[in-house]
Design a protein around this nucleic acid. Sequence first.
DNA 1: AAGACGTGGCT
DNA 2: TAGCCAAGTCT
Length: 290
Amino acid sequence: MNRADVAARVIAWFAAHARPLPWREPDAGPWAVLVSEFMLQQTPVARVLPQYAAWLERWPTPTALADDEPADAVRAWGRLGYPRRAQRLHAAATAIRDHHGGAVPADHDALLALPGVGAYTAAAVASFGFGQRHVVLDTNVRRVLARLEGGQAFPPASLTRAEVTRAQSWLPDDPAQAAAWAAASMELGALVCTADSPACERCPVADACAWLRAGRPAWDGPPRRGQTYAGTDRQCRGVLLGVLRAADAGVPRAQLLAAWPADAAQAERALASLITDGLARSRGDGTISL
DNA sequence: AAGACGTGGCT
DNA sequence: TAGCCAAGTCT
């Protein structure tokens, strides 16, 4: 029962059970993969699906997006969340237009240099978009490996060097197989080896799982801190940005701030941070716009 | 390197 | 219901 055999079974399971997602279709090129990866950062598949289709229809190439305004991208992002991702995707498209001839680069380091592209996204695009061999370590794969080999219910709070080393040891030698493993191990985590109530009875490698063998012990590490949201600056920013997204023209400053009546000082602070981040701009006539 | 950064669905 | 969680990145 070596890693290659276990990985092969996960890949076979994927062939039979993978969801038919548009960015995995044969006609989805690197640009489609890049767009999907940006949208999927911390956002569930179900909410990404409609936005993804609309986005690619409007901007079928990086250059098409780069030639429009960043504000258009933020508005089209809608309610996907973390609107800075829209801003960064626009910036990445601009870099692709200006420095890569309009084609998404295949080189891992070139991908990593793009705005909003970190270790995961660079590896994912190189792997799914170009069939290369990279460690693709997202939250799903981290959890799968933590259980399968580590015997722990969850991975550490932040990505460790040990996890990367472990993931490397699972990567098939052949590039095509490595890319298949990346997609399959992610899908296994998303559909079977889920964070809560994992479906071990449907797991193709349950017999090889250290965590299941140990009786599925509960997480005994440090408490994973929750994400409080109500009343935070983040929520306030979201409300203000929602108003700006919906507006055709600039919104009078006072009217915008009135959208967060609970705490005027907080609204001022949130607006200032949005402007600093380039997600909102103050216009000459005293109005605010995207 | 811990914390900021949106949003909505599920239990 | 309130908290947890979702294909992370940046500082």
